[in-house]
Design a protein around this nucleic acid. Structure first.
Lengths: 213, 213
DNA sequence: CTTCAATGTCAACACATGTTCACAGAAATA
DNA sequence: TATTTCTGTGAACATGTGTTGACATTGAAG
């Protein structure tokens, strides 16, 4: 009984509680809750903190919401960058894209459930931020598409149109993966195969497209 | 002053309040709220009813939620049937489909905002019901696709795969339309054009698909 | 070791929530 | 007209909510 701390009621590590609050919120929202159905007390209870301690880290619940958006998008951007480098060095871009994307998404599941849930569910501010980010993703994919030889002389408008279709298709798949239990590997594999087929079908149409600009 | 009712505090029409509650809920949710952020008091206040009167029509808020799902899906099915008959009698199926769909959706805006918001946002029961309905829509589109001559000898698996891609594409467009103000006609026209291009691109890929079953 | 900012606790606030109960007036039925 | 069934009202409940204020303890900096 040399080092028996009297009472470890205080978490004692310096900046951990803020992260605990963010992660706790993601975890709670990973269930069947939306952000405006999540209460401050429920969250602080879950994190193991007295309600008032919350305000040492966020001025209000709205500010917590903003922090969740920021964190989720930070993860999104990181993922997409990783996926891009994976795909660039690959001989089979489509299947690499799908595999890499879903694999990364699985590692940040709750953050992405948050985005999926709030994309049309929640407050206008969050919705707007998500839509903005989505457009960015689309634009970046358009740039990436332009690297392919047989798309070199396509109009930017048409590239964006293809990018939008591809992003929509992948978003739909990702959302469906998230909507299933993380353990359901069979469903995930099935969805992965479906995503690949969808992308391939889109790609097949591309050479036959006549831009009527 | 022959017919001056003393006080019209009671709405007096027989079964109207239930509908008023449902429509009121849709209207309130059309803003920036999700269902589990909508309170019973807020709703009854909005409808102009005392809180307790609510329980003459629904046993609980959960039951109200179920009623909203039912009503929204009733509208969805009606719309899709109308769209189908429109498309069947058309020489230009794709553009007819898009125009007809968006036009009908506009007429049931708030019901569809509810579906979009709760698809991944809300409680598991609602999510499950929506996913089930989505699959049904997909299956019905697959059947409809089978009517086209050059798809006649396609495998059912591949037909479903195409249907899924098309449904995903249209859902994405509809959701984006719903996310804009109902008055923004310019954005809507733009999205309609985009939807048409997306569908056309998909269709272009179809003849070149080799099923690797 | 002292000092000080960071981070926690406890008590309290004013108010909102979902739901129940006993009651009242209107509409439909007889 | 008398009666019963719907549907609305008012007060009340226990509990939950976001947030504030005054105080305590911790870990790091001087």
């Amino acid at each position: 009984m040399s080092e028996a701390r009297s009472r470890p009621r205080r978490s004692s590590r310096r900046g951990d509680t803020r992260k605990a609050l963010i992660n706790g919120a993601f975890t709670l929202l990973d269930g069947q809750k939306s952000f405006d159905g999540l209460s401050q007390r429920e969250l602080t209870r879950y994190v193991g903190i007295v309600p008032t301690a919350f305000y040492r880290h966020f001025a209000s619940m709205d500010e917590l919401g903003q922090a969740l958006v920021d964190e989720a998008f930070r993860a999104l951007r990181q993922i997409l960058e990783d996926v891009r480098t994976d795909v660039r060095g690959s001989k089979r871009p489509v299947s690499t894209l799908v595999r890499s994307l879903l694999q990364h998404v699985r590692a940040h599941r709750s953050a992405f459930r948050f985005i999926a849930a709030e994309r049309f569910g929640g407050a206008g501010g969050i919705r707007g931020a998500i839509r903005r980010e989505m457009r960015l993703v689309q634009a970046e994919l358009a740039v990436e598409l332009a690297r392919f030889p047989y798309l070199k002389d396509w109009s930017s408008t048409d590239l964006h149109m293809i990018a939008a279709l591809m992003v929509n298709a992948m978003v739909a798949i990702v959302e469906e993966v998230l909507d299933r239990s993380a353990a359901d590997k069979a469903a995930e594999a099935e969805l992965m195969a479906l995503a690949e087929k969808h992308l391939r079908l889109i790609v097949l149409g591309i050479p036959h497209w006549r831009s009527q600009a």
